[in-house]
Design a protein around this nucleic acid. Structure first.
Lengths: 186, 186
DNA sequence: TCCTTGACAGTCTACTGTGGCATGTCGCAG
DNA sequence: CTGCGACATGCCACAGTAGACTGTCAAGGA
């Protein structure tokens, strides 16, 4: 109870529960939507954390609803744990970029194969960037003042995707192939 | 043996072993240096993969040297597995950005505390960017043609860090605090 | 010479994270 | 009334992380 140390995923779940009880399924969808772009989590993980946190008294399981929905409510111990987690220095971000591995080891790959992979990933990023920009435009376009905090993650996403696109476009032809790298995703 | 499916970490180890036998310790250091910026791995993981790959016949353990150094050499089965892995479409990259979590949930954080965290992370990124730029300048500055492939990861790193810095610098004062966000790391 | 210090080298364990399979529920279209 | 697809959870195996732990060896100071 005392000294129960939260990981960031569990803490995020508590963060969502601060606004009221939610089921595991709800939490997965909420998290996917609100933090999915910069914090990955899986169903399994969510249910496991919920079980663990319920055992630790940070949340309380409610009665089973239809379709076995089980709502969880945050307890005061949970609120305390959440606030304690918030105070901590956030860790460094971590990035894993498989394409760079293939690139680095790909000397022996047949001509064209590498270019194909690069083109494919470029298209994925183009799509992602377009999605972020659309979301951003929609938020900014809506009348009324927008909370800068909810804008910040989106803006980082856009900055990131633009940087990646610029990187793709300056790759030497030896890697990116002819114009293949410029094929749009849609 | 047949059908042994490599994960990217194991494949990278094989990639390094293509140039000759190395010990687990060597591999950790080599990987840290060559791919550490975009592919995290830990000692535990490396030794576990080595044991597994040795059992699967992809590498062969040599005799114990001083300090229990145990060199591993890639086998022909290992080379085959490595080439097969190279052919596969690299997966999507993944990013986890804890600072954004704290930001998003940080409404209740005391004024200043958030700014402090932002400033700290900004300094970390400034340092990282400076390091990348120095490495890049050194590579480009050295006489002779530079392999564009070994330059590409570095250039992506620089593009990424610049984007993050630009994002930090456009954060509204409500988040970043006064000039605190501009304090340099060194 | 002995002793401390610190880099080297590997092992172990607990926890966190991912992906997929299995099971069952319920609303609804045909 | 049947079958499909979205909803909802549980479970497992594997991948990845973090840090403690043991032991080895070289070098330099007391």
């Amino acid at each position: 109870m005392a000294g129960y140390s939260l990981n960031a995923t569990a803490a995020s779940l508590l963060g969502f529960l601060m606004d009221g009880p939610l089921t595991g399924w709800d939490l997965v969808r909420t998290a996917e939507e609100r933090i999915g772009d910069f914090w990955s989590l899986t169903r399994s993980q969510v249910y496991r954390e919920l079980t663990a946190m319920a055992a630790a008294g940070l949340i309380r399981a409610g009665e089973l609803g239809p379709r076995d929905r089980r709502p969880y409510a945050i307890t005061s111990a949970g609120q305390k744990a959440f606030r304690a987690w918030l105070e901590r220095e956030p860790g460094p971000e971590s990035i894993r970029f498989p394409l760079l591995l293939t690139l680095l080891f790909g000397r022996s790959l047949p001509r064209g194969r590498l270019a194909e992979m690069v083109a494919h990933h470029r298209a994925l990023h183009a799509d992602r960037l377009a999605g972020y920009e659309a979301a951003h435009a929609e938020l900014v376009g809506s009348r009324g003042r927008i909370d800068p905090i909810s804008l910040a993650p989106l803006e980082l996403g856009i900055a990131y995707e633009r940087a990646v696109m610029a990187w793709f476009d300056q790759l030497p032809l030896e890697i990116a192939g002819t114009a293949a790298g410029k094929i749009s995703g849609r």
